[in-house]
């Protein structure tokens, strides 16, 4: 009974992470893409309008997955929550600053009544920089969890709060995250644009960001091996992780084939699946651990709240899902599916 409760909760955590990375990630990526240089100011304006229209109705909902993850962690797995919040204080504060800046600047730009060229530029640059910044630090935070440098047994500020995340691997995972978010955004935006010129433009962006994904992905593996972090080893020991990796790569090829035809629905689905595979590989590789603390893996199963709490949380999540998923579906149907008619 107890194990089953933990499984259900972990499913919710994993699902929320996947949804946050795919949906929220694309929102961050949109900001990053707007930061890339464009010579043609007409395209820049159109791009801004497409991003406004695509993100406007959904960004707040996409963003809620993060809050759900936090709530599940502190109610269900308080020990993990506590340790992460203490040891990774600095990168998490960096993420929060980014979240504050990005959400508000995006909305300000959208509702600005006197959008002078200077103002538009200032908004777009801050929106882009804060999106880049936030996704980078999200990646750094994730990259610190299993590196084995999170320690509670020291008196030294650097060892306790800086060393866990300040290293090649977390930083390169930060860059990988920014590239994968922009790649996702480029793919999603192909489907959001109505005219062929913009579609072509976003396809070109998708190619370019794809190169970044491959490049930074290689750097992630490289830096892991330089750091002596057993990423490769763990990875190939786990069949599910390998399978997810293979699927992620296969879907690349399918994606490019579909992208040639600019079939937006399938390309979106495949890009989302691909990112989900990467995440599933990541979960599988570390299952059932949440982080490595003082050199020892801390398993989700050993750090739960008392059982009645878990059950109450599950009830809340299930009931909540009955409201959230239908309304979310209605939202997506209203704004994302009727484009074909127009």
């Amino acid at each position: 009974m107890y194990d089953a409760s933990v499984f259900v909760l972990l499913f919710f955590v994993a699902a929320s992470i996947v949804l946050y990375v795919v949906l929220g990630g694309a929102d961050y990526g949109a900001g990053i893409i707007e930061l890339l240089p464009i010579r043609n100011s007409e395209i820049r304006r159109k791009q801004r309008e497409i991003v406004n229209r695509a993100m406007g109705p959904v960004w707040e909902a996409n963003h809620m997955w993060l809050v759900i993850i936090v709530v599940i962690l502190f109610m269900g797995f308080p020990v993990i929550f506590q340790n992460v919040m203490v040891s990774l204080h600095i990168p998490i504060v960096a993420v929060l600053i980014g979240i504050v800046a990005r959400g508000s600047v995006f909305t300000f730009r959208h509702y600005e009544v006197e959008l002078t060229p200077t103002r538009a530029k200032a908004y777009t640059i801050s929106f882009g920089l804060s999106s880049l910044w936030t996704s980078f630090w999200l990646g750094v935070t994730a990259g610190s969890l299993f590196r084995g440098l999170i320690s509670t047994q020291s008196a030294d500020f650097y060892t306790l709060y800086v060393a866990p995340w300040f290293g090649l691997f977390p930083l390169s995972l930060g860059f990988f995250t920014t590239s994968i978010f922009s790649f996702l955004a480029a793919i999603f935006l192909v489907g959001e644009s109505q005219d062929i010129e913009m579609k072509k433009y976003f396809v070109a962006r998708a190619w370019k960001t794809n190169l970044f994904v491959i490049g930074t992905g290689a750097v992630v593996f490289l830096s892991a091996s330089i750091e002596g972090y057993e990423l490769m080893n763990n990875f190939f020991k786990n069949p599910l992780a390998v399978l997810a990796f293979i699927l992620a790569n296969i879907s690349f090829f399918v994606l490019w084939f579909k992208l040639q035809k600019r079939r937006s629905f399938y390309t979106r689905l495949i890009a989302a699946a691909q990112v989900s595979f990467i995440l599933i590989g990541w979960f599988a590789m570390h299952w059932p651990n949440a982080l490595k603390l003082d050199g020892i893996y801390l398993s989700f199963f050993n750090s739960t709240a008392p059982e009645p709490v878990l059950n109450q949380l599950i009830i809340a999540l299930l009931l909540g899902s009955c409201f959230i998923f239908p309304s979310l579906f209605f939202l997506i149907r209203t704004f994302k599916m009727e484009k074909k008619e127009s």
Partner: peptide, 12 residues
């Protein structure tokens, strides 16, 4: 966290 998580999960 475990004790007041309840209202927070409803709030979420």
């Amino acid at each position: 966290g475990p004790i007041i998580g309840m209202p927070f999960s409803w709030e979420g």
